[in-house]
Design a protein around this nucleic acid. Sequence first.
DNA 1: TCCCTTCAAC
Length: 748
Amino acid sequence: MSSIAIPLRSLLQNPSTIKSKHHAKQLHAQVLKTEGSSSSLMATILSIYSHLGFLHESLIIFNTFTSLPTIIAWKSVIRCYTYHGLFKDSLTCFSYMRASGKHPDHNVFPSVLKSCTGLMDFKLGESVHGCIVRLGVDADLYTGNALMNMYSKFQNMDEGFDSRRFSSGNVDLVYEKIPERNFDIKVDIEKDPHPRSLKFLGKNQNQLLVSGGVTPRRRRDMVYIESVKKVFDMMPSKDIVSWNTVIAGYVHNGMCEEALRTVRNIGRANLMPDSFTLSSILPIFAKYVDISRGKEIHGYTLRHGFDSDDFIASSLIDMYAKCTRVDDSLRIFHLLPQLDVISWNSIIAGCVQNGLFDEGLKLFRQMLTAKVKPSSLTFSSIMPACAHLTTLHLGKQLHGYITRNGFDKNVFIASALVDMYAKCGNIRIARSIFDKMDSPDMVSWTAMIMGYALHGHANEALLLFHKMKMENVRPNYVAFVAALTACSHGGLVDEARMLFNCMIEDYGISPGLEHYAAVADLLGRAGKLEEAYEFISKMHIRPTGSVWATLLSSCRVHKNIELAERVGEKVFQIDPENIGAYILMSNIYSSAGRWKEAAKMRVAMKGRGMTKKPACTWIEVKNKIHAFVAGDKSHPYYDRIKEALKVMLEQMERKGYVLNTDDVLHDVEEEQKRNLLCSHSERLAIAFGIISTPSGTTIRVTKNLRVCVDCHTATKFISEIAGREIVMRDVSRFHHFKDGKCSCGDYW
DNA sequence: TCCCTTCAAC
């Protein structure tokens, strides 16, 4: 066997030529047979195993060492642990190595830092950084890259300010990083764990030292991204990985312009952007819906042959979807040779975000058929489709799958479930899921508050909103939308005014369209029409047609034609294609008997080629969706539905129901109006529900537009006569009809 | 040895 000895030596000197486990084992055996088992030889074999990622084999050798392991042995095991994601073991090994008196060399730190990052142990990371500086290996390229990566992940550690985390040690980081110290203001974190709008200057035992200024989170982000930048600037040599790391750091910190500026500088360093660079910056164009610059990058990826890269493809799918070009997303998706869970997630999310709910569900089923295991993100992407389609049975199926696979502890998924149950009309289940959450985050609270708002439980919603603040969860833009929506659906004018001001003054959130719309809607429906008009006129951003249109709808309710005409002018000026406004104006005129003007509106609509979206109501019976449009005679049960409606109408009229024909556009005879109204889609669906479900079952229907005034009244009567609870979801909220009353208190 | 992509509330 002496002929093997020479290749054996050369193999040991060039371990990278060993490519398979089989080959490594062969070499291991040969070494044992011919060369013995000295620790330096075994360390070399160990290093070969670890390079190939064989943890088990590496550990077997490692554990045979009787004397202190060599540095190569330590390094190999540390790297192998990190490679397998066993960060804790990796770091334990690192501390043993240090305790054994061995000085780590530069190529152990990338693994160690990666483990710190993986464990989110930033305190340890910082001390490792100190160790790197002391050992003088901070000029190492790989170490520098890993350091930057670690600091760039720091900002992900939490949302907002959490006193528990601060008192458990991370305060030190902030304390050391702040150059200027101002001990004027002291806040006891036990007493006031949520000091907003204060700048952290340090800590002193149980006290945080702060002064007025930037919010804590912002302050810390700045500290960490500055560390990334500092390491970057100090690195003596940089490769494309260094550039990519600092760019990704900027993107994750929301510093998109800075990221793009850095990309432009890559060329000056005589380097070329690679697939990592591109997949990091594509999300910027997705975020800012910048299709033209996104397309430029797409072109670049094609020219440089990056188009089959999974990462780039997923970014592109996402980018096109966020720019509402979901067709392009689908095209890229279908061209992909390999589909991983992320490409599936991207395309499913893209479809759902663009309202292609059925397509999203179809892709989800295909994903399961393709045996790709869904991740938690898959469920939070697909759940809104169930919420929008009100397909409770599908949502329940998904809920079952989620529970079976242990995803129900995931806060994103739990929030999506809360949202889904609330939007499918089951507010009680939504609440029970919410109550079971260990630490609901702001989104969970918001989903629950919005759920109550949609169901008209305004007080419950506001109670939760205050509870959220008590729990130190800081409301954001959307949370205020939810709270204001609750006020709006509950008619709570004063509370809304207070919230609106509090949002601006205490939270520094500048109101957006949704906030303005909610308040304007509320004022209008409360009859404060002029105040609403003033409020919209004084908006600091340009009101859209739809904001004015909400006021128009209030003008209709309060029968103020004079104001309606002024408001109508505004809408048509800003948004001449606003169909809702034409219909509202036409309704307003026709309910005042001004048929000519009503007709003019309809002619104007037609002239612009606009057609009214047909009203449609659907109901789920025995896991099947039945959809109805007004006057629809195609349903197989049509005759029975018609008969049921006729019987109910007689009973209703005996109880005092009078047809309200205000909503009928057309200048037609009373009898015809009666027929038109009684064949509205919501009535057909409800009647179908009554005749096809056992008595006492709750009836749940969904309408694509707002429920019509007359149908709302009629449904109250029907709920009493049929002894049924009827839950109707329309385009803006839920109505729960029971015993002749509606949960909205007729305020909608 | 180091770097990249997908998600929730409106």
